[in-house]
């Protein structure tokens, strides 16, 4: 337990000193501010394009559009940034050999995986919350405070999908070598999940639903019950990936 806390502290310090916390916070705050504003100014932007007399009329934007922008930004660019920022959290230390000293002095290897996952997920939680709070405030100010159904549930889904991606990163980094192999394999598995989403039969199972149905949940096009199986699958996979990365990493030559 003591080594777990000590290693967590080291992880937090490392993330602060390598500017990773700064990048995550700024990017997610930017998304939080930009999304409601983009939704609000969309009619103006289209007007200023003035395509040779072609008039594009779009309906007056609503709070739903603001959240649609927010979920589009965070589930695409946001998750990409999270992957880039945390992509090297394990593989960089393996290639640089900085873990060898600590492991030979008695730090257990599963603790390494567990504390890396803990710190990364705490950072992900904080940034997502900060970003969501900003969007919530801006939307309430710009569009009035109309209650959106399933808003918190929708955020929870995105959050869980982020945790799943972090577990994927750790799992793939635990047996590959090189700085980017873990990141590349995670990207490949994300692509596979996206491709599998084409098959209607797999819709009900695919974890990707957690990051793609967010706006549908708000507009009522998807129900909370539609997501109960993907949530179960994602939770199961996350725990499985974490467990197996601890097992694999135990045997790995550093």
């Amino acid at each position: 337990m003591r080594s777990y806390i000590a290693f967590c502290k080291k992880e937090v310090l490392e993330n602060l000193r390598t500017h990773k916390v700064l990048i995550l916070m700024i990017v997610f705050l930017l998304f939080g501010m930009m999304s409601p504003l983009t939704a609000k100014l969309m009619p103006e932007i289209f007007k200023s394009l003035a395509l040779d007399g072609i008039v594009i009329t779009i309906p007056e934007p609503t709070a739903l559009d603001a959240y649609a922008q927010f979920f589009k930004n965070t589930s695409q660019m946001g998750l990409l940034v999270v992957l880039l920022v945390f992509g090297g959290m394990l593989s960089n230390e393996i290639t640089k050999g900085t873990l060898i000293n600590m492991v030979t002095k008695g730090l257990s290897r599963p603790v390494v995986i567990l504390s890396k996952f803990t710190v990364a997920s705490i950072l992900w939680t904080l940034t997502l919350l900060a970003s969501f709070a900003t969007t919530f405030g801006y939307t309430a100010y710009l569009f009035g405070s109309g209650g959106q159904p399933n808003l918190l549930f929708s955020i929870f889904c995105l959050w869980l999908f982020g945790l799943f991606l972090l577990a994927c990163l750790l799992f793939f980094s635990s047996f590959t070598s090189g700085n980017f192999a873990g990141l590349a394999l995670t990207a490949v598995s994300l692509l596979i999940l996206l491709l599998l989403d084409i098959f209607p039969r797999l819709h009900a199972l695919n974890p990707i639903a957690l990051a793609s149905l967010n706006t549908a949940l708000l507009s009522g096009a998807a129900q909370v019950s539609d997501l109960s199986i993907p949530i179960g699958v994602t939770l199961g996979l996350t725990i499985l990936l974490l467990g197996s990365s601890m097992m694999v990493f135990r045997r790995r030559k550093l």
Binding site: H19, L22, I26, L30, M33, M34, L37, K40, S48
Partner: peptide, 29 residues
Amino acid sequence: MEKIIEYLPFLIPIILLELVLAVTALIHL
């Protein structure tokens, strides 16, 4: 256009944050 100017107080923090990001990276570089 005037509507964009109306929302300037919302745009300034966005531009500032982008600048902070770019300048931190530039200094490090």
